[in-house]
Simulated scan of single mutants.
Amino acid sequence: MDAMDVDYLNELLEQDVEIREKIKQQVSDLDKKVRVMVGILIKIHSTPTDTLPPLLDSVRPILRSCHDTSAALASLVPPNQFWRWKEMWSNSLRTAVYSAALVEYLSSGSLITLSQASEVLGIKEEWADRFSIAVEDYLHGLISLVNELSRLAVNAVTLGDYEAPLRISVFVKDIFAGFSMLNLKNDTLRRRFDSLKYDLKKIEEVVYDVSLRKLTDSTKSAVRK
């Protein structure tokens, strides 16, 4: 190995270190934003349903601020090097997807799609080879959503919202059915999917208890008939 080769290799190593440090700074910024969002969203467990909109409105500006971070990350990653660097932001992005998904469910009762999650976080299609939401990261975000909704099913009853567990049950069963049709080969993702069975069971127990006590409008109507 001659001196020119050594210099060239050192230059490449220095470039990698520089890119890594710049990516790390942006990921740190994303981490701060997702921590704030999670901190706000945890309050759903002690917030009555009719007063949720202001809480969700306080999260939306933070989601929009992720657009700047996404653009910065996309500008830092060289073309066709997405898979080389993605592990640096995967965990943060999964939590960001979870936050966006929870806001979407609590706002509209619907499941956020991969393309919708990308749009909410300001991630453009043309960045696919540099910065995007990997399918597995999107799915991890949805599993975290179900984990949180299983808690909400219990806490909603405590707050006097007896219809929420029924809505959550239908929604989660639909997600579970979708996951069941996927060919999951990622071990971590597979294990987390298996844990959804316990969340589903927890929700079903709440629904059963609410129905047994005839606390929902549907069960009250059935009794009157």
Rank of each mutant, 00 (worst) to 15 (best):
Y105A: 07
R20F: 03
G39D: 03
L56M: 08
D16M: 07
I112S: 11
I203P: 04
E205H: 02
L182W: 04
L30D: 02
E14V: 00
L200K: 09
E126M: 11
V77A: 12
I203V: 04
V154I: 14
P53Q: 00
L73R: 00
L93V: 03
Y162G: 05
L149D: 10
D199M: 07
W85T: 07
T219L: 14
L182A: 03
E204R: 09
I42G: 01
E204H: 03
I175P: 01
Y105E: 14
Q15E: 13
K86L: 05
I40N: 02
I203E: 03
L102W: 08
D129V: 02
A72P: 06
E87P: 06
D2H: 10
S92Q: 11
E125G: 14
V120Y: 00
R190C: 13
R84I: 11
R224M: 10
T113V: 01
L102S: 00
F131D: 10
D199S: 15
K86Y: 13
A3I: 15
F179D: 01
S218L: 08
L12N: 13
E18T: 15
L196K: 06
S118D: 05
D209W: 05
V146D: 07
K22D: 08
K24E: 07
S90R: 14
E163G: 12
T95I: 09
D137A: 13
L200T: 05
K33Y: 04
I203R: 01
K24H: 00
L30P: 06
D174N: 05
S150A: 15
R190A: 12
I40G: 05
Q25C: 01
K185H: 12
L76D: 14
Q116R: 11
W83Y: 12
S99T: 03
Q116W: 07
T47C: 13
S28L: 01
